[in-house]
Design a protein around this nucleic acid. Structure first.
Length: 564
RNA sequence: UGAUCACUGGUGCAAUUGGCAGCACAACUGAUUUUGGUUCAGUAAGUUCCUGGUUCGAGUCCAGGGUGAUCAACCA
C-alpha cells in the first residue's frame, strides 16, 4: 500500500506529441498545429500510408488543429488524375476530412517559380549546363567531395536570363537545370548543389502544357509546406538527410518555417510495402489488380472486408517511433477480428458440404427455428432459419476416425446442430472409391434448442444449412500472400519467389442460409465457426460471392497443427 | 574508411524526463460458453546492445566500442 499518486492519469505522449507540446510551451507556432498528408498521385495508398494518415489527422485532431490533403504532383511523367481520385476515396473511407483544404503542389507552380528567381537573385542558385551524367559524376561520394560545376559562378543576370529561357521552353529537355548553390564538399550528399528545377516537356495532368520546368521534391515540398502555413511536416525516416536542405531553402527565402519530423515507416510481416513491388504484383499478374483482397492497399483491405475502425485501431496500437521495425501482421488481424466480432451478424454457411439425412424427421416438414443475430450485441435481435430433413454440414465436422479430443460428429456419435436439435450418426454412406458421400442420422425431437428436455449432453455444436432452402454462394478464401515473414532483402532471391501459391482458394459451390439472399456488396457477416466474410463486388444477381476477411481464432486447428 | 539516426521480453510501443521496467499482440494454463469464437482468471517471457564514467540512485546523462538503418534520380 504505497503512495496512490502513481496512478494519477498521465497519458504517455509519443515523440511527436512531445515535440509539439514543447513547441506549444515555447510558443514556436503560436500553439497551432497544422499538418498535411502529401501523397504523390502516382499509385495507390497502402496500409503504410494509413499509418501516416492516422498520424497526421490524429495529431491535428488532438491539438485542435487542421490537416491538409496535398497532392505532391511535381512530376508529370508519372502522375495521373486516376490516382488523385483513388487517394481521395481512400482517405475519406478511412474516416478523415480535409474539408476545403485539398491542395496541389501544382497550384503553387507560379509562386515556386518566383521563389526560384529570388534564390537566383540572392546568388544562391545557378543554371547548370552539365548533362545529368556529368552532374552525377561530379557529385562525389559520401567520403569524397564533389567537384564544382564550371557554370557555378555565372552572373545573377545570366542565370536569370537562362532560367527565364528554360521557363519559356527555349531550352531542350536535359540541356540545363537550376541548381541550389550550397556546398559541393558537404558530407551530406543532398547539400551538394542539388537540382531544384528541371525541364520536362510532358503535359501535366492539371496544368497541361503551361509549364515545361518543374520543381524537384526538395524545393517544392518545403515551400508548399511554408505556403500552406504547415507547422509540423511529418515524413518518413529516409527524408531525415533531406532536412538540412528543407531548412536551408526556407532560411534563404525567409518564409514561414515548419518543423520537419521524421518517423519510421510501417513494415509488416508476410507483406511487401513498396510501391514498386506492389506494382510488380499487379502488373505481373500475381494478384488481380490493386484492390485484390490480398494486397495491403487500402482498396485491397476494404474489398477484403476490413473496416476503417479496425485500421485506425491498428495504427493506434503500433504507435510511432524512429526505429526501423517490422510489425507482426497478427496485430492487424487481431484488430479486424476485434471490430468485426462486435458488429457482424452471425449466420450459417457451409463451405465444404456433406449431406446429412435425418432419417426420423418427417419428409415434407420445415420448421422455422429462432436464432440470435449476435450474442455480442443485445440489440441485434433474432431471426428464423429453416430446418428440414436434409441438411448440409461441414465435411470437417465429421470424422470416421477422430483424434483424441475431437468433439464433433463421429460414427454413432452425437452433436448439437446450432439452434436446432441434437443428432446422432447412424450410418456412413460411401461411394465405390470409399469416399463419404452422405450421413444418415437420427434426431432427438425433445432436444430442440431453447426447449431441450432430452437430458442429453453433447460436447460439440456445429453449423448447418437446410438443403431445400440453401442459397448457393461462391466463397473466396485468402491466406497470406507470402510464405515467409520477410519476403524482402534475401540475397539472390526475388521477393516474388516467396509468394504463397495457395493465397487464394475459390470455392464455387458453398451453401448459405436463405437470409443471406438480400446481402449487398460490402455487407459483413460472421459465418458461424468459420470466420468473417463480406460480399464481393464480383457478385451477380444469380450468385453472391463472399470474401473471407479473416478466420476465427481456431485453437483446435492450432493444436492439431502442433501435434503434426 | 564519411554524415545522420536508431538500439527496452518473440513482436510493437511505454516508463510522469535521473527514482521499484509496464501495456498490447503473440505463446502457454484453467474457467465459462448451444461458435474449439467471445469473455474471464492466470503463467511464462528482460544482464534495457557492450564496457567504463557521473550520481545516494542510470533504460534515461557522458565517453568509447558494437550492431543495424538511411544517403551519391534531372523520382517522391
Amino acid at each position: 500500500m504505497e503512495t496512490e499518486n502513481k496512478t494519477t492519469e498521465y497519458e504517455p505522449l509519443n515523440f511527436i506529441e512531445q515535440i509539439i507540446e514543447e513547441h506549444n510551451r515555447t510558443n514556436r507556432f503560436n500553439k497551432k498545429v497544422h499538418t498535411r498528408f502529401p501523397p504523390e498521385p502516382n499509385g495507390y495508398l497502402h496500409i503504410g500510408h494509413a499509418k501516416s494518415i492516422c498520424l497526421n489527422f490524429g495529431l491535428a485532431e488532438k491539438y485542435n488543429g487542421l490537416t491538409n490533403l496535398r497532392f505532391d504532383d511535381t512530376n508529370p511523367e508519372t502522375e495521373d488524375v486516376e490516382y488523385v481520385n483513388a487517394i481521395e476515396e481512400d482517405v475519406k473511407w478511412l474516416g478523415f476530412d480535409w474539408q476545403d483544404r485539398k491542395f496541389f503542389a501544382s497550384d503553387y507552380f507560379e509562386q515556386l517559380y518566383q521563389y526560384a528567381v529570388q534564390l537566383i537573385r540572392l546568388g544562391k542558385a545557378y543554371v547548370d549546363d552539365q548533362t545529368a551524367e556529368e552532374i552525377s559524376n561530379t557529385r562525389g561520394t559520401p567520403t569524397i567531395a564533389g567537384k564544382e560545376s564550371p557554370y557555378r559562378n555565372r552572373s545573377i543576370e545570366e542565370n536569370l536570363a537562362l532560367f527565364e529561357a528554360m521557363k519559356r521552353g527555349e531550352v531542350e529537355e536535359g540541356a540545363k537545370v537550376l541548381r541550389a548553390k550550397i556546398d559541393m564538399a558537404s558530407p551530406n550528399m543532398h547539400m551538394r548543389d542539388p537540382v531544384i528545377y528541371r525541364i520536362k516537356k510532358t503535359p501535366h495532368h492539371r496544368t497541361g502544357t503551361k509549364w515545361c520546368i518543374y520543381p524537384m521534391y526538395d524545393f517544392a515540398h518545403c515551400l508548399s509546406d511554408a505556403i500552406e502555413g504547415i507547422t509540423h511536416s511529418i515524413c518518413t525516416l529516409e527524408f531525415e538527410v533531406h532536412r538540412p536542405l528543407y531548412d536551408w531553402i526556407l532560411d534563404q527565402l525567409g518564409t514561414h518555417h515548419p518543423q520537419q519530423i521524421e518517423f519510421a515507416r510501417l513494415n509488416l510481416t508476410y507483406t511487401v510495402m513498396s510501391k514498386r513491388k506492389l506494382k510488380i504484383l499487379v502488373e505481373q499478374g500475381y494478384v488481380n489488380g490493386w484492390d485484390d483482397p490480398r494486397m495491403p492497399t487500402i482498396s485491397g483491405l476494404r474489398r477484403r472486408g476490413y473496416t476503417p475502425e479496425a485500421i485506425r485501431n491498428f495504427a493506434q496500437k503500433i504507435g510511432v517511433s524512429r526505429r526501423d521495425t517490422i510489425v507482426d501482421i497478427a496485430l492487424l488481424e487481431f484488430s479486424v477480428r476485434e471490430h468485426l466480432n462486435k458488429i457482424c451478424p452471425r449466420v450459417m454457411a457451409v463451405l465444404n458440404p456433406l449431406k446429412v439425412i435425418i432419417t426420423n424427421y418427417p419428409e415434407n416438414q420445415t420448421e422455422n427455428l429462432i436464432t440470435e443475430n449476435n450474442p455480442e450485441d443485445e440489440t441485434a435481435g433474432n431471426r428464423t432459419i429453416p430446418f428440414s430433413r436434409e441438411i448440409w454440414i461441414e465435411r470437417d465436422d465429421f470424422m470416421e476416425n477422430p483424434p483424441k479430443g475431437y468433439f464433433r460428429l463421429t460414427p454413432k456419435g452425437m452433436v448439437r446442430l446450432k439452434s436446432a436439435y441434437i443428432i446422432q450418426c447412424e450410418e456412413v454412406i460411401k461411394d465405390r472409391e470409399g469416399n463419404i458421400i452422405e450421413l444418415h442420422c437420427r434426431y432427438f425431437e425433445n432436444s430442440k434448442s431453447g426447449n431441450d428436455t432430452s437430458g442429453l449432453k453433447v460436447k460439440g455444436t456445429i453449423h448447418w444449412v437446410s438443403v431445400a432452402h440453401a442459397l448457393p454462394i461462391e466463397v473466396r478464401l485468402y491466406d497470406r500472400l507470402f510464405e515467409v515473414e520477410e519476403p524482402e532483402g534475401h540475397e539472390g532471391k526475388e521477393f516474388t519467389e516467396f509468394i504463397n501459391p495457395n493465397s487464394l482458394q475459390i470455392l464455387p459451390k458453398c451453401f448459405a442460409e436463405p437470409s443471406l439472399a438480400k446481402a449487398k456488396v460490402g455487407d459483413k457477416f460472421q459465418f458461424q465457426r468459420l470466420g468473417y466474410f463480406c460480399v464481393d463486388k464480383d457478385s451477380t444477381p444469380e450468385k453472391l460471392v463472399f470474401n473471407r476477411t479473416i478466420t476465427l481464432k481456431d485453437t483446435w486447428a492450432k493444436e492439431q497443427k502442433k501435434n503434426n
